[in-house]
Amino acid sequence: MAQAWKCSGLRWSADGPVLRWDGGRCSALSWGKQVAFRVVDGGVRTCVGARGHPCAARTVVSGRSTGARCEECARMDRAHSVAADTVADDPRPYHVYLAWFGPGMVKVGITALERGPARLLEQGAVCFSWLGAGPLMAARRAEELLRAALRVPDRIPYADKRAVRSELPGTQDGRAAEIAALHARAVALEGWPESLTPEPFRPVDHVRVFGLTGPPAAGAAVRELVAGGVVRGELVAAAGPDLHLTSTADGGEAVVLDTRLMTGWELLPAEGSVPELTVPVRRFRREPGVQDGLF
């Protein structure tokens, strides 16, 4: 019997997306590569633990959970998370950024300076610009200032991001227009933290990095993996944690697989070469002129 593997998530390197596996193995992904795996028959999805520690109880978790953690491990993970605002004494400098994911979808966020643009790639930001740099608490205050004064959110649901990727403006200037206007308003706000150094507007576009220059439109997303289920398709694009795969099951449309749904399962190579999906999917619903997201 083939060896079963456990996925530990998708990461972005200088060369593109990489799937990581427990034990340190990595699988580099490139456009045209076949992604093919089968969930172990009769298997269950177990908690992935937190902060590098395995779950002591090996708790069974929901197939639809993107975190794949039980309540106790989720609490432990949040307790040491800058993103959850539970760490206030991190001495590292931080960037404040504006990220754009599609029309009307701009968010403000922070990331450690040493991480560069990795956080933006992980979130699936189509376009972004740095806004300022400085100590963690100054970055936090700037983030809160933008939320309060300009009503810029610090989170955008992944479902909304996925649903608009096939309808992005065709030019870099068009994709950068919203964050250009917000950047100008943000650095002019009263109450800007003195220890945060403003940075000029320099948009960075990820459309080519993500492979979104003309792949088949995404029409659905995998809802969850199930025991014995098969995922097999050609990789045509990737953004954040999402892989866009073409499958005969959806008439040539791309289907989005959130790789966070893979964690916690035991996975085997899928035999055969015909693209197929035998896991539950959820169709995108679109109406003329209205973007609905996932339904």
Score class of each variant (00 low, 15 high):
G132D: 10
R155L: 11
V290Y: 02
V82P: 00
A99Y: 01
G289H: 05
E114K: 11
P157R: 10
F37N: 04
T213K: 05
G67S: 11
D160H: 06
P280R: 00
D242F: 10
V61L: 12
V106M: 03
V40Y: 00
G104Q: 01
V230E: 07
A36F: 01
G272L: 00
R140K: 09
L267I: 13
S273R: 13
A2L: 07
Q123Y: 05
V61M: 13
R58P: 02
A88V: 13
V231N: 01
S27A: 09
R119A: 14
D154P: 00
P203C: 09
E276P: 06
L131D: 05
W100H: 06
A159S: 15
W130H: 10
G174P: 03
R208Y: 05
V35H: 00
G49T: 08
A220M: 06
T46H: 11
Y158C: 01
L146P: 02
A149C: 12
P93T: 05
T197C: 09
A180D: 02
A138L: 06
L10E: 01
R175F: 08
M76W: 01
G124E: 00
C26V: 08
A237S: 10
V236L: 08
G43L: 02
A163C: 10
R282I: 15
R282L: 13
D292C: 13
E224Y: 09
I110L: 15
E71H: 13
E114R: 15
R140M: 06
T66A: 10
M76V: 13
H95K: 12
V230F: 08
R165F: 01
L189D: 07
P17Y: 01
V18A: 11
A218Y: 00
A112Y: 07
F101A: 00
S247C: 15
W192P: 03
D205Q: 09
W192K: 05
C26D: 14
W5F: 14
A188T: 03
G16V: 02
E178A: 12
L131G: 06
S166L: 06
P269Q: 09
P169S: 02
A50F: 03
G43D: 15
E224C: 13
G124I: 02
V231E: 08
L267S: 13
L225S: 02
L19N: 02
R165L: 14
R38Y: 03
F201G: 05
A50Y: 04
Y158V: 07
